[in-house]
């Protein structure tokens, strides 16, 4: 098992290096460079710039370096925690990153747990109650969940919360707590705000996962060993939960890796509508402003999150399935 984890971690590191190459290419893609913006800004602030000044800046940022050297400079900095500067915020990227990334992880993990618990229960129910009215109702809800863009759902829920429930909406904290230090009251306030994002981000993933779970379970219920279990005289509940669900979970764990990108994507988009202090709003703003170091750092960390999630899924699968464990 330990060797298995080690090998998967090795794969992950290799993938990360390629992820970094893509990240670097994205920085280099847009027309114009960080330096041009910097020079334009300095010009705006005051007076002219001497050609020597510009040349000094060019050397410092390595504008004329060959591409592999540029990559190396950026990558080695990245590994050491130097992610470059955000020209828009005029701060090192690292200062903007951590807290927002923390909230993204928190919301993603909670959404994941929510959508798994709901998916398994709903999937088992609808697979074992096939061709009944509740199954059709669940199917309709699943279709809708998959068809509504998450930002639209966020808007509708916010309007609902504001107009019908009379709640203060948006953000993760009430005004009083936004800048307050952490306390129990602030934590409770956070919990009160979390249900909308979790529901909104989890909706489409839950609709999809519960559909996958239903399909898996229907497949497994056709397996011979389920018939064997029934032939032993086990009750239908034992047959389903002990023999069928356990095996239907394998493919679900395998698609865990696939459901994560959806959650992280959803989180970034929904955060804009819900005005949440997570990576999303800053990331898309950085893209629109061509603040590439900031944007790419965020993108890289989102990819790393995903890779860690996939590693976790692999380990879970090995734990669940003896055939993989003994490989």
């Amino acid at each position: 098992m330990a060797r298995y984890i080690l090998r998967r971690s090795g794969y992950m590191l290799v993938t990360m290096i390629f992820v970094a190459v893509i990240g670097f290419l994205i920085i280099e893609l847009p027309p114009g460079s960080y330096l041009e913006f910097e020079i334009a800004r300095l010009r705006q602030l005051g007076g002219d710039m001497a050609p020597e000044q510009i040349r000094a800046l060019e050397v410092r940022y390595g504008v004329h370096d060959p591409i592999y050297l540029k990559f190396w400079k950026w990558f080695s900095g990245f590994v050491r925690g130097d992610f470059g500067r955000s020209f828009e915020h005029r701060l090192p990227v690292s200062e903007l990153l951590w807290q927002r990334l923390g909230f993204t992880v928190l919301i993603s993990v909670l959404t994941m747990i929510f959508s798994w618990v709901v998916s398994i229960i709903v999937g088992v129910y609808s697979a074992t109650h096939r061709y009944t009215i509740p199954d059709y109702a669940i199917t309709v809800l699943q279709f809708i969940g998959l068809s509504v863009p998450n930002f639209l759902l966020a808007l509708v829920l916010m309007v609902f919360a504001q107009q019908v429930l009379g709640m203060e909406v948006g953000g993760l904290f009430s005004g009083a707590y936004r800048n307050a230090p952490w306390s129990l009251a602030k934590f409770i306030d956070l919990l009160k705000h979390l249900w909308i994002p979790i529901l909104v981000i989890g909706a489409s993933g839950t609709a999809w996962l519960s559909r996958v779970m239903r399909g898996n379970l229907l497949d497994v219920l056709n397996m011979q060993y389920v018939q064997t279990a029934r032939a032993k005289g086990l009750s239908e509940r034992t047959v389903i939960w002990k023999h069928a669900v356990r095996n239907a979970l394998h493919p679900l764990v395998m698609v865990l890796g696939m459901s994560l990108p959806g959650i992280i994507s959803g989180e970034t988009v929904v955060a804009i509508v819900l005005n949440m202090p997570t990576t999303g709003p800053l990331y898309f703003r950085a893209l629109l402003q061509q603040d590439m170091y900031l944007a790419v750092t965020f993108l890289m960390f989102l990819a790393v999150l995903l890779l860690i999630g996939n590693l976790f899924a692999d380990i879970l699968l090995a734990w669940l399935d003896p055939r993989i464990r003994f490989e």
């Binding site: 847009p30 027309p31 959806g262 992280i264 994507s265 893209l287 790419v296 989102l302 995903l306």
Partner: peptide, 24 residues
């Protein structure tokens, strides 16, 4: 397979957005 895994290791909308941002 490695190429596919690599592409799949990015969250979709942010990756689309990054590529779209590079358009002139």
């Amino acid at each position: 397979q490695r190429i596919i895994e690599l592409i799949m290791s990015f969250p979709t909308v942010p990756l689309w957005a990054a590529l779209a941002a590079a358009l002139p």
